[in-house]
Nucleic acid binder design. Structure first.
Length: 327
DNA sequence: AAGGCGGGGTT
DNA sequence: AACCCAGCCTT
């Protein structure tokens, strides 16, 4: 892993943000492309947000891309382009929380702050037999304090790397290697046969289903696109004009489509159903291709060949790939 | 303190 | 299809 062979805080920062909620296998390619495109803080700070999002396309949690971009600009202003070297300053950057601040600080500068990621939550909660839910603030604070005490005078970078690796390789969520674990004599969960039950989580997420109808409005060999803004999913990414329905059986009416653009008489070319599961939502989407007589002046229109230049949500990118638009 | 935010992996 | 994986921001 290239980011383990450097003490450059910028490279470590990029890798830690990408590797959050992402497997190493998937993240590695994104990391390489990102640091090639933006080798320095300054190059990232001066980039367009669209360019940053394009490199993040398909990775998910796009606020990470917006935040790292914003933080790079912040570093130029507040720290003269030098990545800050105190825990407090690192933590003040947007998109960097307790985990990332401890990881970057220890790996780049040897700052003595323990990392608490999912691995560490699991290791420490099992070691101390913690049956309080690990997804509440007070429990995380307790676990951080216990982990910090274990770090004590040890080398922070080595300790942080080791405890995360131990969680990932030995103290795994399923099928942990208790049979060969060097810590079973001190592991409360093992002694009380609680290993499979810990860590305990309290929150359940309920998913809502949303029905999206994307309109491909064609006029003069161009398509109408728009950028998602404000709140909700896929902020900053691009999409086609969207009509959302509450029920599966609903389809956009001619009248609704006509309000967006003046369409020709022939019926639209309707795609198959595309589905995507998000953390809190289940998306069901169809795509409708219309030929238009006119479109409103203020909309953004691009040629088919330019579609590849924009950052799309996974479900739209899948459709565009299937239709040969990105080939 | 609670909820929202993608996408991938395993069973 | 139904489960799991996670750190940070906003409200």
């Amino acid at each position: 892993m290239p980011w383990r062979e450097t003490i450059d805080p910028y490279l470590i920062w990029v890798s830690e943000i990408i590797l959050q909620q992402t497997t190493v296998r998937q993240g590695e390619e994104y990391y390489n492309r990102f640091v090639t495109a933006f080798p320095t803080i300054e190059s990232l700070a001066t980039a367009e947000q669209d360019a940053v999002l394009k490199l993040w396309e398909g990775l998910g949690y796009y606020s990470r891309a917006r935040n790292i971009h914003h933080a790079a600009q912040d570093i130029m202003i507040r720290f003269g382009g030098q990545f800050p070297d105190t825990h407090k300053d690192i933590l003040s950057l947007k998109g960097i929380g307790p985990y990332a601040a401890a990881a970057i600080g220890s790996f780049a500068y040897g700052l003595p702050y323990v990392v608490v990621d999912g691995n560490v939550l699991r290791v420490i909660s099992r070691l101390y037999g913690i049956t309080a839910p690990v997804d509440v603030t007070t429990t995380v604070k307790d676990i951080r304090a216990k982990a910090q005490a274990l770090l004590e005078t040890q080398d922070a970078a080595t300790f942080n790397q080791a405890i995360m690796e131990f969680g990932a390789m030995m103290c795994t969520y399923k099928n942990p290697g208790c049979d060969s674990c060097p810590l079973i004599r001190s592991c409360r969960a093992y002694q009380e046969e609680m290993v499979p039950a810990i860590p305990i989580k309290s929150k359940r997420i309920k998913k809502t289903t949303r029905y999206f109808h994307f309109l491909l409005l064609e006029h003069n060999e161009k398509l109408v696109i728009e950028q998602r803004s404000s709140k909700g999913i896929w902020q900053g990414l691009y999409q086609f004009p969207l009509i959302e329905k509450k029920e599966a059986k609903d389809a956009p009416s001619l009248h609704e489509v006509a309000q967006i653009a003046s369409i020709n008489e022939q019926p639209p070319q309707v795609s198959e159903v595309y589905k995507q599961t998000l953390t809190h939502q289940y998306i069901v989407a169809r795509f409708y291709k219309y030929s238009c007589k006119t479109v409103p002046k203020e909309v953004k229109m691009i040629r088919n060949t330019a579609l590849i230049e924009y950052a799309w949500p996974k479900i739209i990118r899948q459709y565009l790939t299937d239709e040969g638009y990105l080939a």
